[in-house]
């Protein structure tokens, strides 16, 4: 009996030391869970989740303080991805934080802009260029569409505009979207008038 006790005590001690050492030696800097959550967030930095940016929201979720349905720009896709990551049930977007909208970018009416730099200070990703009393403009490729620049503008010259896809960025609509469009259009057939793009999407080359 004593041998068994001794063997297990020694084993327990040795393994405990090993674990303790491993815990010190392979210590992970930062919060890996928050990193993973952060990677799924859209990085709009809009603050609609009530946290000052995506990273703080990710940390709040990791701590269990925030729910996964507070990100309107990410929408359903982000909620689903977060639910998969955290192993919880997906839920609809929380209405108090906003609604899911199509991708937009800010546009400054340069005729009206007075060059006050307030929007530059508000932009979380430095996507606005300009200097005091000089015209400002938005770098479209860097704009996340967070709308944080709209409110500070004293002359209301910033507008959110839908992002027009280029040929390279365009994606095929899913057949379900196409069916929805077809129901709205005339009998779902392709008319050959000019500029009937919506109708065109219902055409089917395969026959």
């Amino acid at each position: 009996m004593w041998t068994a006790i001794v063997v297990f005590t020694v084993l327990a001690l040795a393994l405990g030391l090993l674990l303790g050492y491993a815990g010190q030696a392979f210590k992970v800097e930062g919060d890996p869970l928050a990193d993973k959550i952060d990677a799924l967030l859209p990085q709009t930095q809009c603050g609609q989740c009530s946290y000052p940016g995506c990273r703080p929201y990710a940390e709040a979720i990791a701590r269990g303080e925030a729910d996964i349905n507070q990100c309107p720009p990410g929408g359903e896709a982000t909620i689903k991805a977060l639910a998969d990551l955290l192993g919880v049930e997906a839920k609809p977007l929380s209405a108090e934080h906003g609604v899911e909208k199509p991708k937009m970018v800010a546009w400054i009416d340069e005729q009206v802009c007075i060059g006050c730099t307030l929007c530059i200070q508000a932009c979380p990703v430095d996507a606005i260029l300009g200097a005091p009393k000089l015209m400002h403009t938005v770098i479209v490729d860097e704009c996340t569409g967070c709308e944080l620049c709209v409110a500070p503008c004293p002359v209301d010259c910033i507008y959110m505009q839908p992002l027009v896809p280029t040929l390279e960025q365009w994606r095929w609509p899913s057949p379900e979207e196409r069916l929805a469009i077809a129901e709205e259009s005339v009998a779902g057939s392709v008319r050959m008038d000019s500029h009937q793009h919506e109708v065109a999407k219902t055409g089917r080359a395969e026959s």
């Binding site: 392709v190 000019s194 065109a200 080359a205 395969e206």
Partner: peptide, 14 residues
């Protein structure tokens, strides 16, 4: 009006 053939092509709007 289809651009390309009936198998791999796509319908044109105009």
């Amino acid at each position: 009006l289809v651009f390309g053939g009936p198998m791999g092509g796509f319908a044109l709007a105009s």
